[in-house]
C-alpha cells in the first residue's frame, strides 16, 4: 500500500529503548516500549508529551545517534528502505549526508570555522560547488536575520539565539528528504520564529517528511499536519 507520490520515509516497528547505567550498578532505565511510528513524505509530525517522556530519545533513534534495544528503524534512502538499526556506520553516514537532516537544540561548534562555511558545509558534502553552496548559505542567514558582519566569524562567541539561527540555517541548507527538528524555535524572537515556521512549511510542501518537537503551541499548530503522543509508547518504569 505505497502511494508513489507520498512514500513512507520513516518506518519504526517495535522499537524499544532502555539505557543501562553500569556506573549505577547496572540499573536499567526503560524509556520507549514497542514504538510503531511511520511518517510519509509531505507530512510534519509533532511529537508531544511531557518533558522526559522520550521525545528527544525517539528523534535520536531515528537519526541513528542512539541504538535501539529492539525493533527496526526503516529509512527510505535513494529509493531503498534501509534498517538503521542494522546498518553499518558507513551506510548511516551516507544516509545522513543525503537523506537525513537534523537540527539539534544546540550548535556543536568547530573552532575557527566561519559561520558561512558552517552553514554551507552540508551542501559541500553533497558535492555542490563552493560558490553555489555559499550563495544558499547567504540567503538562509539573511532570512534568519543573522547580521552580515557576523558571517565571516566562527559562531563560538555568538549568543544562544544567534547560534540557534546558524544551526537552523545549516539544517535547511540541503533539501533533505527527511528533517528532524528538536525545538528549532526555542530562544528565538517572534520574527525569527515566523521565518522558521515558513522554512518548515516550504520543506514540507516540497515533499520532505518532517518530525519535530515544538514546545510552542502556536508554532506546532502552524507547521504540524498531525501529532504523535509519546505517552502512549512510554515504557513503564
Amino acid at each position: 500500500m505505497t502511494d508513489p507520490t507520498f512514500p513512507t520515509m520513516i518506518d519504526l516497528a517495535g522499537v524499544s529503548k532502555a539505557f543501562t547505567l553500569h556506573a549505577q550498578g547496572g540499573v536499567r532505565l526503560p524509556v520507549l516500549d514497542r514504538v510503531d511510528f511511520a511518517v510519509r513524505a509531505g507530512e510534519c509530525v509533532a511529537l508531544v508529551g511531557p518533558s522526559g517522556a522520550g521525545k528527544s530519545t525517539l528523534m535520536r533513534l531515528v537519526y541513528g545517534n542512539y541504538r535501539c534495544t529492539t525493533g527496526s528503524i526503516g529509512i527510505r534512502h535513494d529509493d531503498e528502505v534501509i534498517d538503521l538499526a542494522a546498518a553499518s556506520p558507513r551506510t548511516i553516514l551516507a544516509i545522513r549526508r543525503r537523506t537525513l537532516g537534523y537540527v539539534s537544540q544546540f550548535l556543536r561548534v568547530v573552532p575557527r570555522v566561519p559561520t558561512l562555511e558552517v552553514v554551507a558545509e552540508p551542501l559541500r558534502m553533497l558535492g555542490v560547488d563552493k560558490a553555489e553552496a555559499v550563495d544558499r548559505a547567504r540567503i538562509l542567514l539573511a532570512r534568519l536575520r543573522v547580521p552580515e558582519r557576523m558571517w565571516s566569524l566562527p559562531p563560538a562567541t555568538f549568543s544562544g539565539g544567534e547560534q540557534q539561527r546558524v544551526n537552523v540555517a545549516r539544517g535547511f541548507a540541503a533539501d533533505y528528504p527527511i528533517l528532524l527538528l528538536d525545538e528549532p524555535t526555542a530562544s528565538l524572537d517572534a520574527a525569527n520564529r515566523d521565518t522558521v515556521v515558513a522554512l518548515i512549511n516550504e520543506a514540507r510542501e516540497r515533499g520532505a517528511a518532517i518530525v519535530g518537537i515544538f514546545h510552542d503551541a502556536a508554532v506546532r499548530e502552524a507547521v504540524a499536519t498531525r501529532t504523535f503522543d509519546i505517552e502512549g509508547v512510554r515504557a513503564a518504569a
Binding site: 535520536r60 541513528g64 545517534n65 541504538r67 556506520p89 548511516i92
Partner: peptide, 12 residues
C-alpha cells in the same frame, strides 16, 4: 561504531 553513537549512547 559510529563516533556519535559510541559517545552519546555508550553501551560498554
Amino acid at each position: 561504531g559510529l563516533t556519535d553513537q559510541v559517545l552519546d549512547d555508550p553501551q560498554h
